[in-house]
Design a protein around this nucleic acid. Structure first.
Length: 281
DNA sequence: CTAGGATCCTGTCAGC
DNA sequence: TGCTGACAGGATCCTA
């Protein structure tokens, strides 16, 4: 569920809360989240970056802590820059509970990593392994919408693939940052069926889809992400995009475009896929 | 190249 | 009330 807008929302808050702080202690409670903590101790956090759905916490000693929260990972801050406030009920088990796998103890606060399903991961690498300003990590990161994904690259990519357009949009090795929620909504907005073969899209359809992707991601950013499932921000609150989604999760509801047909759900590439059979061709 | 399934893991919810 | 099975979606790996 955390896709580009959700992870960007986390990034913006972490910049506010933990940049400038010093890591005093790393409390690793779950072996799945073990990494060489000695490389991070006593070091100041100098920046936060996002690469598609991954975060990097950049340290003064030229190491970076890389975090992927996958579907249910949560990074929540409490400290001098944010006192206790109302914690979302989506923080299952509470701020410091049985799903808390790692705590960054800072000089002026704590950053909790909670993850119910434990799909997320954390590791530490040399910062130089991350390129400074592009979205590419060791050339393994694909271009991202709103960053370095061009229409030319997008059209070329689609024209060479016979896969379902929705599955291709979510392929992180081809395009970074799009997940199930925004893929569904972008396809609905551009009136393209998720089942279409990518190479069957015309240039004008490709352009509409490209613009729809930017549009839904911007809406996601505006609303602070989608908290359909487990997403919460570092201040422990929820995003609002789920209250504004176009088609995702709307099975059985009247299509917001034609206002006649009902949204249908089926599985594509193993994921729940929502669409209007009349509007999306 | 492609599709599809299993895997990682636990909470929630529908149905009986 | 309590059990069972389906489902949630990010990413990787494996088979066909």
């Amino acid at each position: 569920m955390p896709e580009l807008p959700e992870v960007e929302t986390i990034k913006l808050q972490l910049e506010k809360y933990i940049v400038g702080s010093v890591i005093k202690k790393l409390e690793i409670r779950n072996k799945k989240y073990e990494f060489d903590a000695s490389k991070a101790l006593g070091t100041r956090i100098i920046g936060i970056r996002r690469f598609a759905k991954q975060l990097s916490i950049d340290l003064e000693n030229d190491y970076s802590i890389m975090i992927h929260v996958k579907m249910t990972g949560q990074l929540i801050y409490r400290g001098s820059k944010l006192k206790l406030n109302n914690l979302s009920k989506k923080v299952i088990g509470g701020l410091d509970g049985k799903h808390t796998h790692l705590i960054f103890h800072l000089n002026d606060g704590d950053l909790y990593y909670n993850d119910v399903r434990q799909f997320g991961w954390i590791k530490i690498i040399k910062s130089e392994e991350l390129m400074r300003s592009s979205s590419a990590i060791n050339n393994n990161f694909a271009p991202e919408p709103l960053k370095d994904l061009t229409l030319e690259y997008f059209f070329n990519l689609l024209s060479k693939s016979k896969r379902n357009i929705k599955v291709l949009l979510m392929d992180q090795s081809k395009i970074g940052g799009i997940g199930n929620i925004y893929a569904n909504d972008a396809l609905w907005l551009s009136r393209i069926s998720p089942r279409r073969s990518a190479s069957s899209l015309s240039l004008s359809e490709t352009t509409e889809l490209y613009e729809a992707i930017e549009s839904v991601l911007k809406a996601g950013l505006k609303y602070g992400g989608a908290s359909e499932l487990a997403f919460v921000t570092p201040d422990g609150k929820e995003g609002e995009y789920q209250n504004h989604s176009l088609v995702y999760g709307n099975e059985g509801q009247i299509c917001k475009s034609c206002k006649i047909n009902r949204i249908e759900k089926f599985f594509l590439g193993g994921r729940g896929t929502y669409y209007c059979p009349e509007c999306q061709k």
